[in-house]
């Protein structure tokens, strides 16, 4: 079942278009990752799905129906800024939310010994976990998370993704935005946003497709980087190696020619592009 659907959704702020004709589907039991740099339009899209912002044009349906206030009972939302009361304990935050949703507080699910601590006294990783627990304690059918792993340690991020997977396995549709490319593998499906539009969709492999990268190794890496960057190549510095995204098969020859023409000796190999490199290309 499709729990969230958007069709040609657009949101303008004055003359600025934050979200531009976006289509989106989230089904029960799947995790959809919304990838994009800051300012790509992820949060605006999420706010429209939550009913916090009205689309300028286009349509949104939740659980097969147009958006209605009654659907909020079936939605869980983890905001980028936590959305917890910092001057209440975790247990009090859980209790407050449980009372509103008419459920029992799931204290045992929260932060263990930290439940009686004020939220502001907890480290960020535990705050995010508490925020997640608060959002899912009423067992929502649609779980929307805006950058839920932002600023937390790799271990805490893995735990949060485990929790999201458990929610999807339970049957919830999960939409999660992130700008961490390495987290994309945890999602069942990805939507890549740039400039307010969806510029790519599918699995990591599908999004990367046939894109290739030329790995350039040279002692004069700084000079090589400047040369390639000045020539409008999409180049990333990986340690002392340069990774140049190839737009065509001719790019390898051209890059080598450019560098050797400038007296820079190089060793090169061609390999598949990473998601990061693909994102750089898609975002430009």
């Amino acid at each position: 079942m499709i729990v969230a659907q958007a069709r040609a959704v657009t949101r303008n702020f004055g003359s600025f278009t934050a979200v531009d004709r976006v289509d989106l589907d989230v089904s029960s039991g799947e995790i959809v990752g919304l990838l994009g740099a800051n300012g790509a339009g992820k949060t605006t899209l999420i706010k429209m799905l939550l009913g916090l912002l009205a689309p300028t044009s286009g349509s949104i349906a939740l659980f097969g129906e147009p958006q209605r206030a009654q659907q909020r009972r079936r939605i869980g939302y983890v905001a980028q800024n936590l959305g917890l009361y910092p001057d209440l304990t975790v247990a009090e935050n859980l209790e407050f939310r449980a009372q509103i949703f008419g459920t029992t507080p799931s204290v045992e699910m929260a932060t263990g010994d930290g439940t009686d601590l004020l939220v502001r006294e907890l480290p960020l990783g535990m705050q995010r976990r508490a925020s997640f627990t608060v959002a899912i304690q009423h067992r929502p059918d649609l779980l929307i998370l805006d950058e839920p792993t932002s600023g937390v340690s790799p271990l805490a991020r893995s735990e949060l993704w485990d929790m999201m997977r458990r929610e999807a396995d339970r049957g919830a549709g999960v939409l999660v935005s992130t700008h961490y490319m390495d987290e994309a593998v945890h999602a069942d499906r990805l939507l890549v946003m740039a400039g307010g539009s969806i510029v790519a969709a599918g699995s990591v492999g599908e999004i990367i497709g046939s894109r290739r990268t030329l790995l350039v190794r040279t002692d004069r890496w700084a000079e090589a980087f400047t040369l390639l960057d000045d020539s409008d190549y999409s180049v990333i510095l990986d340690g002392r190696d340069l990774r140049v995204l190839m737009r065509s098969d001719d790019d390898a020859r051209a890059v080598i020619g450019l560098l050797e023409g400038a007296g820079v000796a190089v060793q090169t190999t061609v390999g598949p592009a990473t998601l990061d490199e693909t994102m750089v290309e898609l975002s430009t």
Partner: peptide, 19 residues
């Protein structure tokens, strides 16, 4: 509540069949 200031009113969207 959402601000509908500059939002164009459209005909209600009929969701596609579940897949």
């Amino acid at each position: 509540a959402p601000k509908r200031g500059d939002a164009a009113q459209e005909a209600p969207f009929t969701p596609a069949a579940s897949s």
